[in-house]
């Protein structure tokens, strides 16, 4: 455990150094990068990926994966519009129900994975198609628009000068960090990922923990969906397509082992910021979008290679 912990810290140190280097390099490339306005705005743009990445860290720490988050985001967005406009519910109720629907989507993932022992990759690959299909089928390609002004506070507004969703992300970062780092539940999560059979024998409610985590994954994807609708002021059934790849990249970049058992929320946050800084900073320095994709791919591989080489002795 201590060896693990040390190697983890090592990855995060590498990442933090990398992040500082990248931020410094980008700041010299464009004087508009390191401004409060730009950084806050980037915070707004990364909030949805960030929210989902927090719970994805838990998922991957248990040795699982959730590919369906982008589709759940799309489905909640569509349901929000349908509940509000077609079923005539008050908007706050529609918002809550849509998020709960996201949670149910996650619960279904969890049930398939725990009850039927289907590997998470396959279970969520199937629901990735299923939930996206439901979003397309229910919406029949219709968009729902024209929300009341107050709704846009969530996605487009500020509270005390900081984008609303950044407050939500910040609060959840703390909650997730505390749960994973300091509670029994967090320890159970690590134990499940490190050695599932062992965890079962030592009396940890592995299935219950997984069920909770996948449900939470659905809930935050739902929350991200509502924020997304508020940010772009319309619903479309293709919302959130490919989100899972961004989320997984951020989490893995943050040092969470895809085999489970290792990873921290701080790492994920660092990975997230690094990715967003690269996207934004490279664009501001005149690199085109396709070039940025290449750089992110390279950074992902190199960061993990570096961390593996430096921490090999720690791994044992």
């Amino acid at each position: 455990m201590t060896a693990n912990f040390r190697s983890l810290l090592r990855h995060e140190t590498i990442l933090a150094v990398l992040l500082v280097l990248v931020l410094g390099a980008l700041a010299t490339q464009s004087d508009r990068f390191f401004t409060t306005a730009n950084l806050l705005n980037q915070g707004r743009l990364m909030a949805e990926v960030g929210l989902v990445a927090l719970v994805m860290t838990f998922v991957i720490v248990t040795g699982g994966i959730d590919l369906s988050v982008g589709s759940i985001l799309g489905l909640t967005a569509i349901l929000l519009g349908v509940f509000w406009q077609n079923l005539g519910m008050p908007l706050p109720v529609a918002m809550v129900l849509a998020i709960i629907a996201g949670g149910i989507g996650g619960l279904v993932n969890g049930l398939i994975i725990t009850r039927f022992k289907v590997p998470p990759l396959i279970a969520t690959l199937a629901t990735l198609a299923l939930y996206r299909g439901l979003a397309e089928g229910i919406s029949q390609a219709r968009s729902v628009r024209g929300y009341p002004e107050w709704f846009y506070v969530l996605g487009q507004g500020d509270v005390w000068g900081v984008p609303t969703q950044l407050w939500i992300l910040g609060a959840l970062v703390i909650v997730a960090g505390v749960i994973l780092g300091l509670t029994t539940f967090g320890r159970a999560t690590y134990a499940t990922g490190a050695n599932e059979t062992g965890a079962r024998f030592s009396g940890i409610g592995v299935d219950r923990a997984k069920l909770l985590i996948y449900t939470a994954s659905g809930l935050v994807a739902g929350l991200a969906g509502v924020i997304f609708v508020s940010r772009v002021s319309t619903t479309r059934s293709d919302m959130g397509t490919g989100l899972e790849l961004d989320v997984i990249t951020a989490v893995v970049l943050g040092g969470t082992s895809i085999f489970g058992g290792r990873g921290t929320i701080i790492g994920t946050v660092l990975g997230l910021i690094l990715m967003q800084a690269l996207k934004n900073g490279l664009a501001l320095s005149g690199v085109k979008g396709d070039g940025t994709i290449v750089v992110i791919g390279l950074v992902l591989i190199l960061a993990i290679v570096a961390s593996n080489i430096f921490s090999r002795d720690g791994e044992g």
Binding site: L245, I248, T249, V252, S257, I258, F259, K288, G289, D290, G291, T292, I293, V294, I296, G297, L298, L300, I301, I304, V305, N308, I309, R312
Partner: peptide, 23 residues
């Protein structure tokens, strides 16, 4: 040889090949 999980390597390759092709 470097013990990087295949999903990580190929996730990176996905970006590199896709962006590179369009570039």
């Amino acid at each position: 040889y470097l013990r990087i999980p295949s999903i990580v390597v190929t996730l990176g390759m996905l970006s590199i090949l896709k962006g590179g092709l369009i570039s």
